[in-house]
């Protein structure tokens, strides 16, 4: 299959290894991977801030470059929700509506693509550690992704998966929310980190780097031993 990998701006800039692991995994599964270099952002920051015209300036370019893709795989549940759920709303009643709808139907968050589209759960990975999984809200509630990442983790050799009590509670990132309301965002993150630490896990894993950027930022600042990792990093470990 021709897979178009969409690496969002913050993954590209701060977490390139997440994208690299995805490329390796997808190629190992025998797919042809392309990464359109012209697009960098899905437009979600402006969209969530209420500036839909400006969001369309960004989304329009992305839509144009991805409109004919066989399968778009995206390295974040949140950006995935933007393409799958919010593009059709952003373009409702506009000429691009049909294209947005088509893109929505051909877009997959990375773990969902592996499990639901390809039917793959065992990638032959080995990761000897105790981990807990954080459900990113957009992946969980906009895209309905819950069991997929866990199925993938269960197949990883020597990995012990433990559930935290607040796995489905928001970590407090929320895009511009984290900067506009840092005190609330921080309190939410602290609740989340405490919940993860209570499990005794060494790693908090997620399929969304944006949540992890916020959580790792808190953990590092507070000198906590718990570490964060993106799912793709584990799935590509040997």
């Amino acid at each position: 299959m021709n897979v178009t990998l969409f690496i969002p701006c913050f993954v590209d800039t701060c977490f390139p290894q997440v994208g690299m692991h995805m490329v390796r995994i997808l190629e190992r599964l025998g797919h042809r991977v392309t990464c359109p270099e012209a697009i960098a952002c899905c437009g979600q920051p402006a969209f969530n801030s209420g500036y839909w015209d400006e969001a369309r300036q960004v989304a329009g370019k992305t839509l144009h470059h991805l409109r004919d893709a066989e399968a778009v795989v995206i390295a974040s549940g949140s950006c995935g929700a933007m393409l799958k759920v919010f593009y059709p709303q952003l373009y409702a009643g506009r000429p691009e509506e049909a294209a947005a709808q088509r893109l929505s139907e051909h877009t997959w968050e990375f773990s969902d693509f592996l499990v639901s589209k390809l039917g793959v759960t065992d990638l032959g990975a080995r990761f000897p550690a105790k981990v807990t999984f954080h459900d990113g809200c957009h992946g969980l509630r906009e895209l309905g992704i819950k069991s997929g990442p866990r199925k993938l983790l269960e197949k990883v050799r020597d990995l012990e998966l433990v559930e935290m009590s607040d796995a489905e509670t928001c970590c407090g990132f929320g895009g511009t929310f984290a900067a506009k309301f840092p005190m609330i965002s921080t309190a939410m993150g602290e609740v989340k980190c405490a919940s993860a630490a209570d499990t005794g896990a060494e790693y908090m894993v997620s399929n969304d780097s944006s949540c992890l950027m916020h959580l790792q930022g808190l953990l590092s600042r507070q000198g906590k031993p718990l570490k964060t990792l993106h799912l793709a990093q584990i799935l590509d470990s040997q």
Binding site: P16, T186, M213, Q216, L218, R221
Partner: peptide, 16 residues
């Protein structure tokens, strides 16, 4: 309240 992740020496797109 939070550390900021550093900008990677090589971005994904540069690697690609």
């Amino acid at each position: 309240t939070r550390d900021l992740p550093p900008v990677a020496p090589e971005s994904f797109k540069e690697w690609w």
